[in-house]
């Protein structure tokens, strides 16, 4: 589906409302976890944890964060499946894309190999988020429920892995925000629509696919 904005640019629906809700839950719980987590381990922010209330907020946010995959499945089964399948499937163009990734990082899409709905970088981002989230959830659950059963060494390892996973996720967040800014992609999560021009530059195979599907759809 495409619409045009007031400037007449063509807009494509990239994320349905339900997908955006899922993203919002994940993003907000992640940010709360980041701040409340930092408050637990970093002196200058420890005042936020004063009285221990931030630990409760951390747990509430953790529940929200852990619910994301289930929420996605409930609200948008097809979308959930799609993101999972697409994120771990790379083709020749993806490999080529990685070779030229520096250009993409510099904001130049010309001469980048054609990409599908997810470009190779996004796939890598998604898969990394999924893996580190899994690790952080598992270690987090251990720290939440099984802490008293751990030896000091086990506790230290668990906490370190938990923290390192968060570092990784935070670095991924930096990249995520970076590309959002560079490619003015905010609207994809704000309204769900993106500029067709952008998409033709960055996700030409997906635009083709859409048009093909659209043609098929209208013909059928």
């Amino acid at each position: 589906m495409t619409v045009s904005d007031t400037n007449g640019d063509q807009q494509i629906l990239r994320y349905r409302t339900r997908q955006r809700v899922v993203h919002a839950v994940m993003a907000s719980s992640f940010l709360i976890l980041l701040v409340t987590g930092l408050a637990l381990v970093w002196g200058p922010l420890a005042f936020l944890a004063a009285g221990g209330w931030s630990r409760y907020l951390h747990r509430i946010a953790a529940v929200a964060f852990m619910s994301v995959p289930f929420l996605y499945l409930i609200l948008d089964r097809a979308g959930a499946k799609e993101v999972l399948v697409d994120s771990f499937k790379y083709d020749r163009d993806d490999v080529a894309w990685f070779r030229h990734m520096y250009r993409y990082v510099l904001g130049r899409t010309a001469e980048m190999p054609p990409q599908g709905r997810l470009n190779a970088g996004q796939k890598l981002h998604h898969s990394a988020v999924i893996v580190f989230s899994a690790v952080i959830v598992v270690t987090g659950l251990i720290l939440w429920w099984l802490k008293s059963g751990l030896t000091p060494t086990q506790l230290a390892w668990t906490a370190m892995i938990h923290d390192l996973s968060m570092v990784a996720l935070t670095l991924l967040l930096v990249g995520h925000v970076f590309f959002t800014y560079v490619y003015t992609a905010w609207s994809s999560m704000a309204t769900g629509y993106v500029s067709k021009d952008d998409m033709e530059m960055e996700h030409s195979k997906w635009v083709e696919e859409l048009e093909h599907d659209g043609a098929e759809g209208s013909s059928s």
Binding site: V105, L106, G107, R108, T109, V177, Y181, V182, D197, M201
Partner: peptide
């Protein structure tokens, strides 16, 4: 990312203008 972002966005905007 902040520094690079400004450069990269400028590049991308230029590309967009080109296309337009």
């Amino acid at each position: 990312a902040g520094v690079l972002g400004i450069i990269a966005r400028r590049n991308h905007m230029a590309e967009l203008r080109e296309v337009e």
